[in-house]
């Protein structure tokens, strides 16, 4: 068995701001006539390397625009890095946002199956887990209501319930716990602790330093695409607090 769940090896993620704005033939043609050179490179992440050990709760902290979400998208395979390589050992719940695959016009029941399909789970598995999902999300009352009528808390609850039903080896959690109420936050923390005790790797992105300290053992701190600090959660957090 590998020692690390995720190995991030010297990755750089570059966005070209100007070409990604152009999306029609007409604009390409105009640009060609004007002979514009497009050199508006933006480095969302620069030379980042770190390793996440298996079965450990790991935090990514940093201010807005520091590259946290880009890093998550790279780890979950939505983006491919411009340079460098990422190795992921184990199944990953490929969710960046809870309820990402929801169709607002469908009911919770239909969305559970759709979302399960998006995550690549079989129908039979979803049928077996359906009761557990709705139990956990506490949504039996609203199970046949289209999710567009849900509150954001209900949305997040359903999303979290689906994402954790599979017992993924790696779970990525991006700022979601701020949505639900206190009792649901507790429930989520309990569920994550439960999964952690079974050897799951948790990657948590949060602004909430207290929560990070409570849940995680290692952390990295990103600022403007650079890795500032990497190591023990208390050291990283205290340096982050001092500098912001």
């Amino acid at each position: 068995m590998e020692e690390y769940a995720v190995i991030v090896d010297n990755i750089t993620m570059k966005f070209n701001l100007s070409t990604e704005k152009v999306d029609s033939l007409k604009e390409h043609f105009v640009k060609f006539l004007k002979r514009q050179n497009s050199n508006e490179d933006f480095y969302a992440l620069k030379n980042i390397s770190f390793k996440i050990p298996k079965g450990e709760p790991f935090a990514i902290i940093g201010g807005n625009g520091s590259g946290k979400s880009t890093l998550l998208k790279l780890i979950s395979g939505i983006y491919k890095p411009t340079e460098g390589a990422i190795t992921v050992n184990g199944s990953i719940a490929p969710l960046i946002e809870l309820g990402a695959g929801f169709d607002p016009d469908l009911t919770a029941r239909e969305n559970v199956y759709l979302n399960g399909a998006v995550l690549g789970y079989s129908r039979r598995f979803m049928e077996q887990s359906f009761k557990d999902i709705i139990d956990f999300a506490e949504l039996w009352e609203f199970v046949d209501v289209p999710v567009k009528n849900y509150s954001s808390g209900m949305y997040a609850r359903l999303g979290f319930a689906i994402a954790t039903i599979v017992k993924p080896e790696i779970l990525i959690v991006d700022e979601i716990l701020s949505v639900g109420d206190v009792s649901f936050q507790k429930k989520c923390e309990q569920k994550m602790n439960d999964l952690l005790s079974r050897g799951m790797t948790l990657i948590l992105v949060s602004h909430d330093i207290e929560q990070v300290k409570k849940m995680c053992s290692k952390a990295i701190w990103l600022n403007r695409g650079m890795l500032i600090e990497y190591g023990d959660v208390d050291t990283v957090c205290s340096r982050y607090m001092q500098n912001s």
């Binding site: 395979g77 939505i78 490929p94 969710l95 960046i96 990402a100 695959g101 998006v118 995550l119």
Partner: peptide, 9 residues
């Protein structure tokens, strides 16, 4: 797009 931007599939 909304799926492709958020889920790897």
């Amino acid at each position: 797009g909304s799926l492709i931007r958020k889920v790897s599939l």
